[in-house]
Amino acid sequence: MDYDPQEPGRDVSRIDLKAYLRRIGYTGVLRPSVEVLRRLHRAHLLTIPFENLDLLLGRKIKVGLADIESKLVQRRRGGYCFEQNLLFAAVLERLAFKVTRLSARGPMGSQQQSPVAYSTGHALLKVDVEGTSWLADVGVGDLGPLEPVPLSDGVEVQHAGWIYRMDRVFAGNAYSGWMLRHLRSDGWFDVYSFAETPFFQADFEDQNFIASHHPRSPFIDQLVIQRNGALRSSLVDLSLTTRRPNEPSKSRIVRAEELPVILADTFGLVLEDDEMSRLVTFARSKEVPRA
């Protein structure tokens, strides 16, 4: 659906494009093309981490474009799916890409779970460029594709050694949408399913409220920070996991006092002293007493 300038929270003309490009370190051409989409998608994911720290600091997460831009671009923080993908959608629209905002459901066919994908509302994008529709998603942490994936039944892509597949899914005999799958050492993992029904700012406001308030949300009582790339890192409370393609994951339990260094060196996050002090205090509550 075309952009509606009257929709609240979505005035893409006001975004500071130069500041965003500096934030992700992008210096290439800016015409709407598949190659530019790929390069922007990769640069965003390699730079801006997935994180829920504001909720642990007692703050509300706001998904109006000005709030997202202030947090992720100007204050150089990360965010979760609504923040990440609504920012990326605005940037793409500012560059004359045709973008449709969509919503997905979490894993449906695997017993393996990710803290990023529990919720039934996950923001993602469909981008139409050069005659092809693409899934673009910079907001699914270390689980999602590093580059866009074409919406084509059975297509497989490989990004820095990570393999993904897009499949049509059906309800009875009727086509109902798409399933994004990720190849892991134990087989195909169903990341999420989605239809091509457009979603709007008000929809994401509602979904964000649930994600940031519902007692079963994984984001309100545990620390979740993730980073995509060839090497993928995830910190859930005090469990730090790293993954490489075709290798077993490696995990270790860290101490609360290690958080400042881990956040800076692994995830590129530097917080104010009082913020970090509060996070360390929160992390101490997650430590298991040593015998």
Rank of each mutant, 00 (worst) to 15 (best):
V36D: 05
L279F: 02
R216H: 12
D221A: 12
G139M: 04
R75P: 01
H159Q: 04
Q6F: 11
Y3G: 09
A96G: 07
W134Q: 07
G121V: 13
D203W: 11
D4Y: 07
A171R: 13
L87E: 07
M276I: 09
L17G: 03
S13M: 02
R39E: 14
F199E: 08
T242A: 01
D153M: 03
W188A: 01
L235D: 04
F267C: 05
P198G: 13
Q84L: 03
Y118R: 14
A256L: 11
D11L: 03
G161W: 04
S110Q: 04
Q113D: 02
M166W: 07
R39P: 00
V261C: 00
N228K: 06
D67L: 01
E35G: 00
S185G: 13
L151M: 11
R284D: 03
V127I: 11
D206M: 15
A66Y: 06
D142N: 15
R22G: 06
L87Q: 10
F194S: 14
P245F: 05
G139V: 02
E287D: 05
G154N: 10
L30A: 02
E7V: 15
L231R: 15
K71M: 01
Q207P: 00
H159T: 01
V261D: 11
S13I: 01
C81W: 02
V63N: 03
G106Q: 07
R168I: 00
R184K: 14
G141P: 06
G25M: 05
Q207K: 10
Q74C: 00
A160Y: 04
F282V: 11
Y80Q: 01
E130P: 13
T197Y: 03
L238V: 07
I24G: 07
E130G: 14
S33W: 04
S33F: 02
V34D: 04
V288H: 11
L102M: 08
G141Y: 01
S277E: 15
V36G: 05
V155Y: 04
V29D: 09
R42L: 15
F50T: 08
S110I: 03
G144P: 13
G79V: 03
S217G: 15
D206F: 15
H182W: 04
D67S: 15
Q6T: 15
V63R: 03
F170K: 05
R168N: 02
E83K: 04
D203I: 12
